[in-house]
Design a protein around this nucleic acid. Structure first.
Lengths: 336, 336
DNA sequence: TTGAAAGCGTTACCAT
DNA sequence: ATGGTAACGCTTTCAA
């Protein structure tokens, strides 16, 4: 037996297809009796509406696609959870499309890719120009998150300001600064996030005539961290220093390996990270906090606004960093 | 100007719609000249095929949906990367649908949900019976990953065997055993993974007439770990002990907090985890390894087989655990 | 090698 | 309150 269609239901209930459609879509002007007959027929046949056909007919999919560089980090979990709830409450479905490695980007240049079968597109942590070499092959509203571009709606974080804030706090510690820089994966498109933070940090330090006594650049991989710890141990300044790490993950990771080479947090060095992650909070790490939830919620708001056609102008929301101080920078107290 | 359709292209190129369709689908029997005219028309109009309409007509979407309990952990990143490549090379698109919290499960009971607009469904780390209270509202081939169920194709990991392996190794250390159990989130459907590992562990220990001297149950949250560390410090056995943790994350997390309460790995205790994560490898943690990549690849294979209708019987592949030994259990050497 | 026309399942317009 | 029918954009059969 083939999948029953709306027509089969209509025949079974002795009504027209229009009536069945109306019942399904909860139209008001339907007699309770007919409604009952239709429901019964639906039940008996085990009819399920073909959403594909509906979407085809309507030209709208009721779907939102999110294009992510990857999954596997709490940042995206938090961001997308915050984004999901508001759009789901407006009955939009959210589908995730992680790049899962950069060679897969080619797939996303095809306008026929599944990701574009959606009413709106969210691009997270990626500059569309770098991703596509131009605009995305998508006609609907597009919102950028965690990245800024003058040509799109965007919800972003002031990473330059974050770098500045970190640098100012670092300066206030009056310790020599060791900079643990993050390096992009060789084949991935360069992350604008790291570049922005880096420039905020170095400019601010420079304005005070200060440069890091040591800069170690590390890939976001586990073995890189061990090497970084070795390098720091070998080339560190004589006394205590402040270690400024580009992300909390880097900070927490290197802390472990520094321990193995006999450098101890709170005695030999202070530690400052970026992101305000839950792990940082639990570990007592001072960090520049990024309001991830708020950004996700803001993105949802922009998205829904755009879908309702309420946005006649480009929305560019930028969130500011704050600093959360914890024990990891207590050393400053001793020396300040 | 409206979106141009295949008909517009046909008119522009002075051919029938059939011909345009043939050009688009690379049919062999097309004169090179006509082909050129059609391509030119496509170019001039900026025509993009409507995939929705194509899918509607064909009844197939060329999409695979993956239903995940969450994202944000390296496990899913690895698994899905391994799953993605083989299906992408067969031109299937993969869309991710994380539950992002359990109250969102209701959405997935609706047969019209976006997730079911796919040719095949992958359910990861969830028992369909618990998720839906029955079979999923989906007609196509369905493959379970990281969980086993007699009614579905499945690619799973022998978690009971993993527990057994861990317990046997633990016994060989001849140290009192402290068991750091994982607890499910209160509102989430219970993970069969933890239950299976736990039973493998306890049964094996029991068979040797041994019970953990202390069992601490912890939520997979950061503050829970601190409390766990406190409890362990307070109630631990007199001498050195072996800490058996339900996951690497738990193991690595608690290690940090144990350090804070003056219990040191390699001196006061040995540590054994589960999962074989990259973080475990980097931290020198002994662990029961799960072949995540291989599982993802196997899932892709099953999926493609089912889509080609090559599977006339249920496929149930189960992967076995192996043990990776590292410094974290070196204490056994001293005492054995 | 090419084209006309039917038809996929749904909704919306216009009748009644 | 209800129904007939056209239309959405595409692929496919059948015929030329």
């Amino acid at each position: 037996m083939n999948k029953p269609s709306l027509r089969d239901v209509a025949r079974r209930a002795n009504v027209g297809t229009t009536t069945v459609s109306r019942v399904l879509n909860k139209h008001p002007n339907i007699a309770e009796a007919t409604r009952g007959r239709v429901m019964a027929a639906i039940e008996q046949l085990g009819y399920v509406p073909d959403v594909g056909a509906r979407h085809f007919r309507l030209g709208r999919t009721h779907a939102i696609s999110a294009l992510l560089p990857m999954i596997g980090t709490p940042f995206y979990e938090t961001l997308l959870t915050a984004l999901h709830d508001p759009v789901a409450s407006k009955d939009y479905d959210l589908a995730l499309f992680p790049l899962l490695g950069s060679q897969r980007v080619r797939r996303y240049r095809d306008p026929g890719a599944l990701v574009y079968r959606a009413d709106a597109l969210v691009i997270v942590s990626q500059d569309p120009d770098e991703l596509y070499g131009g605009p995305p092959p998508f006609r609907g509203p597009t919102v950028l998150v965690d990245v800024h571009h003058p040509g799109y709606h965007s919800v972003s974080f002031d990473n330059v300001g974050a770098g500045r804030l970190a640098a100012e706090y670092a300066l206030s510690c009056h310790l020599p600064i060791v900079f643990l820089d993050g390096q992009d994966l060789p084949d991935a498109p360069g992350s604008p996030v790291f570049a922005a933070r880096r420039s905020g940090i170095l400019q601010t330090l420079g304005r005070h005539g200060i440069r890091p006594v040591l800069t170690v650049s590390v890939l976001p991989e586990q073995e890189g961290l061990r090497n970084a710890a070795r390098d720091i141990a070998a080339q560190r300044p004589a006394g205590p220093f402040l270690l400024l790490a580009m992300t909390d993950d880097l900070a927490l990771g290197v802390r472990q390996h520094l321990h193995d080479v006999n450098l101890h947090l709170g005695e030999d060095y202070s530690l400052l990270g970026f992101d305000g992650s839950a792990a940082a909070a639990a570990a007592g790490l001072s960090t520049v906090v990024q309001p991830v939830r708020a950004m996700g919620e803001a993105a949802a708001e922009v998205l829904l606004g755009a879908l309702n056609g309420e946005l006649n102008t480009l929305v560019q929301r930028q969130f500011s960093p704050t600093l959360r101080e914890a024990q990891s920078t207590a050393l400053r107290m001793t020396t300040a």
